[in-house]
Write a protein that binds this DNA or RNA. Structure first.
Length: 283
DNA sequence: ACTATATCCTGTATGC
DNA sequence: TGCATACAGGATATAG
């Protein structure tokens, strides 16, 4: 699923293809992905032509594509959203929802989304920081992030540590895959109360999360199937490097015990029962 | 204020 | 072969 590394791969792909290009026409093929656009689908399609893109930006899993006029096109990939850059007239990708054509007649920007948890909308005045994502915290690659301060905040939370890692208002960009990988690297059980961690333990966990996401970014992200791909349709290769996620019954790379899969927060959590034992009751 | 859960959505895999 | 069900999970609304 697209988390920070995958979204950054997409951002980089867009950065090489859309800046300074002017929109000629927009087609909305399904209304749901533009549900967050205040004026509705027709307004979305009619308000974009004539605008020119700047350099795409990202916070956590959110992308925004600034326009020269100060507004921005907001984008979230959700579970299965994809941006593709394809030549006009070429076959549409499966579940293509929105098509943006340019005045130069070059590659079109196409938004496909099977499950439609993702979406696009125009953020008025959002080019330099959309208000719609004011509640989204800095991510671990944000230069302005104070890692020590973030670790201190985490140690005040009473929730289990995985809930905290997944809370985008605390630290953004981490989803189920990299949460499990970071917890495995830090040898922590997902249900460990965050306020039972020492400052050092919290800091080590954040560093682990940043390191695993940096490694994933270097390999083009994690792809399990065609649901996550780069703007040119290529897949990422970090899936082969995962130590916990998706490895139920396979041996832990550290201790050899089989990784277990457990239901947690309406999804799956993977951990090593040897390296990441359930914490003792509250003490 | 804080924490936890239900909901949305569809293609794929699995079971009977 | 066909139908039903489980599963994948990010963000938000709602409940506690």
């Amino acid at each position: 699923m697209p988390e920070l590394p995958e979204v950054e791969v997409v951002r980089l792909g867009l950065a090489g293809a859309i800046p300074n290009r002017r929109i000629a026409a927009v087609s909305v093929l399904h209304p749901r992905p533009v549900r967050r656009h205040v004026g509705g689908a027709e307004d979305f399609a009619s308000s974009l032509p004539g605008r020119s893109f700047g350099v795409p930006r990202r916070r956590g899993k959110y992308l925004w594509l600034p326009f020269a006029d100060g507004d921005a096109l907001m984008a979230h990939l959700g579970m299965s959203g994809q941006f593709r850059l394809d030549e006009p007239g070429s076959p549409l990708p499966p579940q293509c929802r929105v098509v943006i054509a340019f005045t130069d007649g070059g590659a079109e920007l196409r938004f496909a989304d099977q499950r439609m948890f993702g979406g696009l909308w125009v953020s008025p005045g959002g080019a330099d920081g959309p208000t719609e994502i004011a509640h989204i915290a800095a991510d671990l690659f944000d230069d302005s992030l104070d890692l020590d301060a973030l670790a201190a905040v985490i140690t005040t939370k009473r929730s289990g540590i995985k809930r905290v890692l997944l809370n985008q208002a605390v630290v953004s960009g981490i989803g189920n895959i990299y949460a499990d990988e970071a917890l495995w690297r830090a040898r922590l059980h997902y249900d460990t109360p965050a306020n039972q961690l020492s400052q050092t333990e919290a800091l080590d966990l954040l560093v682990a999360a940043k390191q695993v996401m940096a490694a994933a970014l270097a390999e083009g992200g994690t792809s399990f199937d065609a649901l996550y791909v780069n703007v040119n349709g290529s897949v990422g290769y970090f899936g082969r490097s995962l130590a916990a996620y998706g490895r139920a019954d396979l041996p832990c790379d550290r201790c050899g015990r089989p990784i277990v899969r457990e239901a947690f927060m309406n999804r799956s959590s993977y951990r090593c029962p040897g390296c990441q034992p359930r914490p003792s009751a509250v003490g």
